[in-house]
C-alpha cells in the first residue's frame, strides 16, 4: 500500500465519521466529556436517586425507585422528605455553616502565609526560584495521611512542641493542642498551602516589571506600589488560590477526624455518621447533594461575573 492510497483511506474514513457527526473536534472534546460523564455526572445522578429513596434493612439499604404493584402497574417511589428532614434539624445547617467558617478562616490564613511566599519566589533569581518551587511541592511526595500523622506527633501532649517549650522553660504544664480547632486550622492550612502558593506564583511571575518601574518613576513608595499595582493585578491568582483551598477544605473529613476535637463540627463528619452510624444512605446522599450545590453555586456565580467583566 503506498502513501497516497493510505492518505485517501484516511480521508475517506474521516469523511465517513463526519457524515455521522463525528469530527476531529468532537473527538478531542470526547475524552474530557467522557471523564465528566463517568466520574461526575453518573455518580451525581446515582446520589440524587438515592436521596429520594427511604432507608430500609436490605442490601442495598434503600427503597427501589420503581415498584411493580400486584396488577403489574409500575410506580415511581420518590420523595423530598430527606431534604425536608435536613432543613428541619438545625444540626445540618450548623454543620454546613461551621464547615464554611472553618474553610474560610483556613483560606484567609493560607492567603496571608502563601502570598508573601509566592511573592518572594516570584522575585527570586532563576536558579533559586526553581529550587524554592521544588521545596513547596516536595511534601506532596509523601502521603497526605502521613503528613497529618506527623502533625499529631508535633501537637501531642508528649509531642515535639510541648517537650521543646518545657525544656526551654517557657511552660511547666504541657499545652493541649491536639483535638482542638487550632489543630484543625494548622492541618488544613499546612496541607493546602501549596494550592495557594502555586497559582499566586504563576500570576506574580507574569507581572510586567515595567509597571512597577513606572509607579516608582511617578513617585509611588514600594508600599503604595504594592497596594495599587501588584495586589490588584494579582487578584485572579488570589481568587484561583483561594478557591483551590476553600473548596476541598469545606468537605474535609480526614484532618478534623485526626486532629480535631469532639466539638469540631464539619459536614464531612456528619455525612460519615449518616452513612455509617445511622445506616441512612438516602439522608447521607441528600447531605452530599446539598453540599455540592452549596459549593458549586457560588463558583458558578463567580465565574459568570468574571466572564461578564471580561466582556465589558
Amino acid at each position: 500500500m503506498n502513501r497516497l492510497s493510505d492518505n485517501a483511506l484516511w480521508r475517506a474514513t474521516a469523511r465517513g465519521f463526519a457524515a455521522i457527526g463525528i469530527t476531529g473536534r468532537t473527538l478531542v472534546i470526547a475524552i474530557p466529556m467522557l471523564w465528566f460523564l463517568v466520574f461526575f455526572l453518573v455518580p451525581f445522578l446515582v446520589l440524587g436517586r438515592i436521596s429520594l429513596a427511604e432507608a430500609i434493612i436490605a442490601r442495598p439499604p434503600y427503597t427501589p425507585l420503581f415498584e411493580r404493584a400486584a396488577d403489574g402497574t409500575l410506580s415511581i417511589i420518590a420523595s423530598l422528605e430527606n431534604y425536608w428532614f435536613l432543613w428541619q434539624d438545625t444540626l445540618y445547617r450548623n454543620a454546613y455553616l461551621s464547615s464554611i467558617r472553618i474553610a474560610a478562616i483556613s483560606t484567609i490564613c493560607a492567603l496571608f502565609i502563601g502570598y508573601p511566599i509566592a511573592y518572594f519566589i516570584a522575585r527570586s533569581p532563576e536558579p533559586r526560584r526553581t529550587f524554592l518551587l521544588l521545596m513547596v511541592v516536595l511534601p506532596f511526595w509523601t502521603s497526605f495521611l502521613l503528613r497529618v500523622y506527623a502533625w499529631m506527633g508535633f501537637l501531642r501532649r508528649e509531642g515535639v512542641i510541648n517537650n521543646m517549650l518545657i525544656w526551654l522553660g517557657v511552660i511547666d504544664q504541657p499545652l493541649v493542642m491536639m483535638q482542638t480547632d487550632l489543630a484543625v486550622y494548622i492541618g488544613i492550612v499546612y496541607t493546602y498551602l501549596p494550592f495557594m502558593i502555586l497559582p499566586l506564583y504563576a500570576n506574580l511571575t507574569k507581572l510586567d516589571g515595567a509597571l512597577l518601574e513606572a509607579a516608582n518613576d511617578l513617585g509611588a513608595s514600594p508600599v503604595v506600589t504594592f497596594f495599587t499595582v501588584t495586589l490588584p493585578l494579582s487578584l485572579p491568582g488570589i481568587v484561583a488560590g483561594s478557591m483551590l483551598v476553600f473548596i476541598p477544605a469545606i468537605g474535609e473529613y480526614v484532618i478534623p477526624a485526626l486532629l480535631g476535637g469532639p466539638d469540631t463540627l464539619m459536614i464531612g463528619r456528619v455525612l460519615w455518621d449518616e452513612f455509617f452510624s445511622s445506616r441512612d444512605w438516602p439522608v447521607a446522599s441528600a447531605v452530599a447533594i446539598v453540599m455540592l450545590v452549596l459549593v458549586v453555586a457560588p463558583i458558578m456565580w463567580l465565574q459568570s461575573t468574571q466572564d461578564r467583566r471580561e466582556l465589558d
Partner: peptide, 19 residues
C-alpha cells in the same frame, strides 16, 4: 430498629458535638 437507630445516632451527635 431503624427508628431507634436514628434517635441514637442523633443523640450521640448531640453528645459528641454539643449540637
Amino acid at each position: 430498629d431503624s427508628r431507634t437507630d436514628r434517635l441514637v445516632t442523633r443523640l450521640w451527635t448531640r453528645v459528641r458535638t454539643g449540637q
